[in-house]
């Protein structure tokens, strides 16, 4: 029997993997991938809960919006990465430390 908790656990795992990728990767594109994973995990969460909402279909509707947002985020993110690369000549976030005082 697949309960709600199963979905939630899977979603948590994916989310944490995505979190690890954001924190530990030395390639900005991989960070973007990590963000994608996190958003995916969130969408899975929505969908899992949406099963119990026949009245409003809230979960599934919001899942669609989230997918759209994710796509937009990727697009803009890539544009930013391109600009960063043009400016710093590197995509290793650890080499970009102009914020350091």
């Amino acid at each position: 029997m697949i309960t709600l908790t199963h979905f939630l656990v899977v979603s948590a795992c994916i989310f944490c993997i995505g979190l690890y990728a954001v924190l530990a990767k030395r390639n900005t594109i991989m960070i973007l991938v990590g963000i994608e994973l996190m958003i995916n995990a969130a969408i899975l969460n929505f969908v899992a809960f949406g099963k119990y909402d026949k009245v409003n279909y809230g979960g599934q509707v919001f899942a669609i919006f989230a997918i759209v947002l994710a796509a937009a985020a990727v697009a803009v993110g890539l544009a930013i990465i391109l600009n960063v690369y043009r400016h710093f000549n590197t995509i290793n976030p650890q080499n970009i430390h102009e914020l350091k005082d």
Partner: peptide, 14 residues
């Protein structure tokens, strides 16, 4: 702590 690296800041926040 203040090394200007994004991931470090994020790590601390989390």
């Amino acid at each position: 702590v203040q090394n200007g690296q994004l991931q470090t800041y994020l790590g601390f926040a989390l």
